[in-house]
Amino acid sequence: MTNGAGQRPFRPRPPRPVDLIRWPDGFGTRFAVFCDVEEEFDWSAPFSRAAQSTSAMAAFPAAYLRFASLGIPLTCMVDYPVATDPAAVDVLRRALADGRSAVGAQLHPWVTPPFDEPLSPANSYGGNLAPSLEAAKIDALTSALTKAFGQEPLAFRAGRYGLGPSTIGLLRERGYRLDTSVRARYDYGAVGGPDFRVIGNAAYRWDGLIELPFSTVFTGRLRQMGPWLHRAATQLPHGPGALARLGLANRVSLTPEDMPIKEVLHAIEVAVAGGERLLTFSFHSPSLVPGHTPFVRDAADLRRFWAWWDAVANRLDQLHVRAATLDEILQAAA
């Protein structure tokens, strides 16, 4: 049923040049923000089917208004516990009324029926499941979202970036148009997940879908060699940190969760100067309330979270990088 943490991880091939999406000139340089809208759970504890509280959604309306004041629409990647909670759905419906934000699907296998697999770290990556079980869970999630919001979701994200060899085909068969399960230049193979080290930030076509990776930017004097250097440095104790401190190569993900603002602002500048046309940012909805994620533990962390977004929005505006809605991305890619 699973590929197990001890077996060879799924390694999707990098896109061919012909697969890369050429954004129209009129699209400009844009950015998109994806929010993993999900239940709260203890990130350090074993996976539990009982951890399905969505109390943090009470903070979503105020957070949504704050993003709206920055001119940032949210693409909300909603998982099963949220999609089946009427109060949480009502919160999201109000946000969707702006005509710019959107809802997509996010699969957390351990809290999405049918529950035919044993709980394990490897099985928390949906792509490790037998194709029939992965399909059944995608169907349950898609049905819940369609019932909640009156339309089928078009965008998908595998929770924990748990893409597998069957995932894209299953999504295509179900009418999805965009996947954002790839985290560029990251490797989860050691814990049973996929290995994305050979995949960069560029959007591309994959078996009929648009693949939009979560952006990772290398900065530093040797940033052109960043993916290779980072991979080699992981073989040494504290190797990646040493590369960053020496100013040689620093891997920066575009998220407020454990990514310092100074490094992210520089990464944005490097990416835009390097010609990247679409930057993707991401965060988890439970981070909106202190104590639910390792990234926002108290009120001071929450203040830093919002200061991070204020600084990022300001820098993007200075660089003339505009926000993009999910509809605009789908239309431009077509």
Score class of each variant (00 low, 15 high):
Ile329Val: 15
Ser253Gln: 11
Arg30Ala: 07
Arg183Tyr: 11
Arg174Leu: 05
Gly164Trp: 10
Trp306Phe: 06
Gln151Met: 09
Arg304Pro: 02
Pro114Ser: 14
Ile138Arg: 06
Thr180Phe: 03
Leu279Gly: 03
Glu263Trp: 03
Ala63Gly: 15
Phe41Asp: 00
Gly104His: 14
Ile138His: 00
Ala97Ser: 14
Pro256Ser: 11
Thr180Gln: 08
Ser55Asp: 15
Pro165Glu: 13
Glu211Trp: 04
Trp110Met: 05
Gly159Ile: 10
Thr142Phe: 06
Phe156Gln: 08
Met225Ser: 14
Met259Glu: 13
Ala51Tyr: 06
Ala130His: 15
Arg16Leu: 11
Phe10Pro: 04
Asp139Val: 13
Pro227Trp: 04
Glu134His: 13
Gly193Val: 05
Leu154Ala: 13
Ala56Arg: 01
Gly274Lys: 00
Gln151Asp: 12
Ile168Ser: 02
Ser143Thr: 15
Val18Gln: 15
His238Ser: 12
Ser44Phe: 15
Gly247Ser: 02
Val252Asn: 11
Thr75Leu: 03
Arg49Thr: 10
Gly159Gln: 09
Leu74Pro: 06
Ala5Asn: 06
Pro237Ala: 12
Thr75Tyr: 07
Leu316Ile: 03
Ala5Met: 06
Met1Glu: 10
Val89Gln: 12
Glu39Asn: 12
Leu92Ser: 11
Leu145His: 14
Leu145Gln: 14
Glu211Met: 10
Thr112Gly: 04
Asp327Gln: 13
Met57Gln: 12
Thr54Arg: 05
Pro17Asp: 08
Asp298Ile: 07
Leu236Asp: 07
Arg223Thr: 08
His292Ser: 01
Gly28Asn: 11
Glu257Cys: 09
Asp179Phe: 03
Ala68Phe: 06
Asp258Trp: 14
Leu229Ile: 02
Arg93Val: 13
Leu163Trp: 15
Met1Pro: 06
Ala148Thr: 08
Ala45His: 15
Ser124Asn: 14
Arg177Cys: 10
Gly220Met: 01
Pro237Ile: 08
Glu152Leu: 06
Pro260Thr: 14
Thr29Pro: 02
Ala242Gly: 02
Val78Asp: 10
Trp306Thr: 04
Ser55Val: 07
Ile210Trp: 09
Leu209Met: 03
Asp179Gly: 01
Pro17Ile: 08
Gly226Leu: 07
Ala105Arg: 11
Phe283Trp: 12
Val33Cys: 10
His266Tyr: 04
Asp207Ser: 13
Arg315Tyr: 00
Ser101Thr: 05
Glu39Pro: 02
Arg185Asp: 04
Ala63Lys: 12
Gln224Ala: 15
Ile210Ala: 08
Trp110Pro: 00
His320Lys: 13
Glu257Tyr: 08
Tyr188Lys: 06
Gly274Pro: 00
Val111Tyr: 02
